[in-house]
Amino acid sequence: MSHSPNLAPHPRRVDLDSPLHRKAGPTAHAMRPAARDSAADTRQANPAPRYLTNSEAAAFLRLSPRTLEKQRVIGGGPRFHKFGRRVMYALADLEAWASARSFETTFDPEYLDRHPGAQRDDQ
């Protein structure tokens, strides 16, 4: 009796376009247009304001969390929101506050107006 191998086709087909089998890199499916994620499109169209905690906002601005706490009391810090007892910072407010503090030189008239101790006395 001869033993013949089973040469029947494999019952499970492999989908080469599935994420498990797709090659990574710039040459993968270069001629096919990129698939658009409809959920990502709706998130981009209606961006929800993102709020950061005091620690997250301090890390974003590369400041100490204590610095933001002091600025909330004495003023001069970024706008903040209170949700009950929780203090939160909107990302847009942090970016606006940081961009309002950009100067070209220490002799910039706006810089001198905001920092009166920076004016040099003629000696």
Results as ranks from 00 to 15, higher is better:
residue 40 A to T: 01
residue 72 R to G: 06
residue 38 S to Y: 15
residue 48 A to V: 14
residue 41 D to K: 14
residue 114 R to C: 09
residue 31 M to S: 15
residue 17 D to A: 13
residue 37 D to F: 00
residue 59 A to R: 14
residue 20 L to K: 00
residue 123 Q to I: 09
residue 51 Y to Q: 07
residue 94 L to S: 00
residue 119 Q to F: 08
residue 38 S to P: 15
residue 57 A to Q: 05
residue 48 A to S: 03
residue 90 A to V: 01
residue 110 E to S: 15
residue 62 R to M: 05
residue 14 V to N: 01
residue 45 A to L: 14
residue 89 Y to A: 00
residue 63 L to N: 02
residue 12 R to D: 05
residue 6 N to V: 04
residue 95 E to M: 12
residue 47 P to N: 05
residue 25 G to M: 04
residue 35 A to L: 15
residue 12 R to C: 00
residue 57 A to Y: 11
residue 71 Q to M: 13
residue 55 S to R: 12
residue 61 L to Y: 06
residue 8 A to L: 05
residue 93 D to S: 12
residue 81 H to I: 03
residue 57 A to M: 02
residue 90 A to W: 00
residue 50 R to L: 08
residue 1 M to W: 04
residue 81 H to T: 14
residue 34 A to V: 12
residue 12 R to P: 01
residue 34 A to L: 15
residue 8 A to D: 05
residue 81 H to Q: 09
residue 99 S to L: 13
residue 81 H to D: 11
residue 46 N to F: 10
residue 101 R to K: 06
residue 86 R to C: 11
residue 122 D to Q: 06
residue 70 K to V: 07
residue 60 F to H: 15
residue 117 G to Q: 05
residue 71 Q to L: 12
residue 46 N to Q: 02
residue 10 H to T: 01
residue 83 F to P: 02
residue 61 L to S: 07
residue 47 P to V: 02
residue 46 N to T: 07
residue 114 R to E: 13
residue 115 H to P: 08
residue 108 D to W: 00
residue 45 A to W: 03
residue 7 L to M: 09
residue 56 E to M: 11
residue 20 L to P: 01
residue 108 D to A: 09
residue 81 H to L: 00
residue 59 A to S: 14
residue 2 S to F: 10
residue 123 Q to D: 14
residue 78 P to Q: 09
residue 79 R to C: 11
residue 80 F to I: 09
residue 87 V to I: 13
residue 23 K to D: 15
residue 69 E to Y: 13
residue 5 P to I: 01
residue 30 A to F: 12
residue 77 G to S: 11
residue 51 Y to L: 12
residue 74 I to P: 01
residue 62 R to P: 01
residue 18 S to D: 04
residue 41 D to R: 05
residue 52 L to E: 05
residue 46 N to V: 01
residue 71 Q to Y: 08
residue 120 R to I: 07
residue 31 M to I: 03
residue 77 G to I: 13
residue 43 R to N: 08
residue 96 A to I: 02
residue 80 F to P: 11
residue 1 M to P: 08
residue 50 R to T: 04
residue 97 W to C: 08
residue 75 G to I: 10
residue 25 G to F: 03
residue 44 Q to I: 00
residue 22 R to G: 05
residue 56 E to L: 06
residue 14 V to K: 13
residue 106 T to G: 05
residue 80 F to E: 07
residue 75 G to F: 14
residue 2 S to Q: 05
residue 69 E to W: 13
residue 13 R to P: 10
residue 70 K to R: 15
residue 36 R to F: 07
residue 96 A to L: 15
residue 89 Y to D: 06
residue 105 T to C: 04
